[in-house]
Amino acid sequence: MSSFWVRRLWQSALTLLIMLTLMFFMFRMLPGDPTATVISPALYPKAQETLRIQFGLDKPLWEQYLVYVKNLAVFDFGLSFHTGRPVADEISGRLLNTILLVFPSMIAAYALGALVGAIVGWRRGSKLEAILVFLSTALQSAPVFWLSMLAILFFSIRLDLFPIGHIVSPGMFPEENWRMYLSMDFLHHLALPFLVNTLYQFCFPFLLMRSSILATVGEDYIELAKMKGLTDRRVLYHHAMRNSLLPLATTLPMTLGWAVAGSVVIETVFSWPGLGLLMVEAVGRSDYPVVQAAFLLIAVLTVVGTLIADLLYTLLDPRIVNA
């Protein structure tokens, strides 16, 4: 068991290292002054000089790289071009906001998708099945930002049920703090992006679970489970569904990654102050240190999400760790 985990951790660390190396070179390969993406050109020349020395930009590339890695290790991403504050401060609350939006809706989507997919696949050939398969394929094909806009148009503007965007009402929490997350106001703001994201993410696990159940139905152990006199529901939940969860679980890391990466879009529509929105705004302002930091954090989230999904998988399939 331990060797499996050691290997997995190793892989994750390596992936991250390569990604931040990639970032380092991408940001330095720009035409013009290679330091233009690290130090704001808007600063006084004197201040630029001080920072250049602080970040080691007067040194050769490999030394710069070492400084870069060392700074990252202590979460020093430099100063924002836009606000002049340390990037770490700008970004700190954003990570949590993204997690609060993406993870719960992924969990809801997978739970719902697996359940509905299993039931529909078990009772195959129904009208409901055909309708749901068509609807979820269509939904999956729609751009999520467009769905979000339709949802806002309908639920927020026509019906006035939910706020149009943002994480809390303006002025409610002048200083962002943890109390904010416990308020009804926060939940009210979370509701619509959560629902849209859940509905959108629902399609994939639903379709996969359905086809996976269809493949399970002919298996010998399902037949034996029926012959044992188990009720139909028990055969479905404890045998067919349990085993069909495996292929679903293998795709979870991938889709979790997509969801985190896709949060860029949904956060933008709902003005949700997460990493994705920060990144998009920072790109618009050419605030490169923030772009880089936001990207790296999204990458960390993706990799950690993958690790968690792997953990889940080993819990579901005893053959992986024990064999």
Binding site: S12, T15, L16, M19, M254, G257, W258, V260, A261, G262, V264, V265, G276, M279, A294, F295, I298, A299, T302, V303, T306
Partner: peptide
């Protein structure tokens, strides 16, 4: 696969 697609 670990690379966040859209942000990248």
């Amino acid at each position: 696969l670990g690379l966040p697609f859209l942000p990248f």
